[in-house]
Design a protein around this nucleic acid. Structure first.
Lengths: 248, 248
DNA sequence: AAGTGGTCTAGACCACCTT
DNA sequence: AGGTGGTCTAGACCACTTA
């Protein structure tokens, strides 16, 4: 026998997926649901909590519950990362990709230098105490923070290069590394699906019920030396990941 | 000012991530937390609910709350899918990959034939009313249902082939399609991160706080004809997705 | 049988948004 | 000011697990 709150949640869920309550619509208030279904307010709140938790609904204190609107952007993870020939800046592949979808990209970059945590050190196969240059990048779509994309390079490899400046890199990260004999030719990608931790949820203003994909890309030279780590946090409600690959 | 339940949740969370409460440990009971922190049971339950929701903790009715244990398997999505030369069955790439990680794979396959839903029809560019053969596959790791991997083929393409039998396909899906002039050479992959719907959560026995990756792969012939759709549901707590790619 | 979590109620006060 | 959601309490009864 299903519980009262589960039954109520299912009723509302059905109305949403059927389209009777289209995205953006306000749901009946807690008070109204209490009266209409003859249950206590706590029970109504538990049902609504489920929907919020499932990412179907958001709540705004003082105004009400609303059916959530989704407009994810597609991120083509396997496309070449080299900068694009264009007069519009930034010229990196991600920005170009967002513009292709009729939306407006923007980036904020902060540079940090220092000894990284164990995870980053392991991925880049660093010696103990070896430093990295981190480019902590926030990517915005139509003005809202959409993903975090932090990249890390061994410090010795990028010292005094444009990679250490907090702007879109010209003529591109690949070209600079290649000119220093460390052009990468192979990526290893890993994607983990999980709930955000508190800090990520705050920074990305994620409502409850929004999972993230953690994308980790290590780029290698032909001699299998890791020269770059790219660590991205992609909120499930804002980004879809796409790959093109050859079937073999 | 943080709420009581948020404060309590943070306290417990900190103990978990710091390792004071290692995976598998039982948390204090609700009753004990009520007394220890001098708050009501509902408040304790709301705090614990947060942790469950974030995937850090699971609850077992009648026994208690426990710190969750993660043992995800790595799925190499870009590896060739062709069957592996081995005496152990099943011989498909996924099973081989799981065995490499020292674990035991198992598959259950159910065949369905009929007119598919709009999403599948669109991906395979079918004519209205055209039928597909669906192979609905459940993949188990060490005996527990770990992912759903359903594949769909235009019916006209696989009629009377071993693809219509509910077993591991010999000598392999690729070989059969190739022998019919429909060997695929290119994949388009799409990965969506979201919370499971009710049916998925039930089938995969997902606790609250477990997001999923929905992986959609369409395989094309050299003349860009889509011949197969692979639709997988990968629970975040059980699977990590990996890709190898060439940087260009 | 005792202890655990799961559901549900009734009522209080607070914080926020709209008018 | 009035309506909305957010937090919190106290207490009840049920369902499940363990011993």
């Amino acid at each position: 026998m299903p519980s009262l709150y589960a039954t109520l949640a299912d009723t509302l869920r059905a109305e949403i997926v059927a389209g009777a309550l289209p995205p953006g619509t306000q749901l009946p208030s807690e008070h109204e649901l209490v009266q209409r279904h003859g249950v206590s307010r706590n029970t109504v709140r538990k049902a609504l909590g489920q929907l919020v938790h499932d990412g179907l609904v958001i709540s705004r204190q003082g105004s009400g519950y609303f059916v959530r609107e989704h407009q994810p952007v597609i991120w083509h993870a396997s496309r070449p990362e080299r900068n694009v020939q264009t007069s519009v800046l930034p010229a990196d592949a991600w920005s170009h990709c967002v513009r292709e979808q009729g939306r407006t990209p923007e980036e904020k970059i902060r540079i940090v230098v220092g000894v990284p945590n164990a995870r980053i050190a392991a991925a880049l196969q660093l010696k103990p105490g070896e430093e990295v240059v981190g480019r902590l990048r926030e990517r915005y779509v139509d003005g809202v923070l959409s993903t975090l994309a932090d990249s890390y390079y061994p410090e010795s490899l990028v010292r005094d290069s444009p990679i250490m400046l907090p702007y879109d890199v010209q003529p591109g990260v690949y070209a600079i590394l290649a000119s220093r004999g460390a052009g990468f030719t192979r990526n290893r990608d890993e994607i983990i699906t999980r709930m955000p931790n508190r800090e990520e949820a705050n920074r990305l203003k994620l409502g409850p019920g929004t999972p993230i994909a953690e994308h980790l890309r290590v780029s290698f030279t032909p001699s299998n030396r890791p020269v770059r780590l790219l660590l991205s946090i992609l909120p499930g409600d804002k980004v879809t990941i796409a790959y093109e690959s050859f079937a073999t």
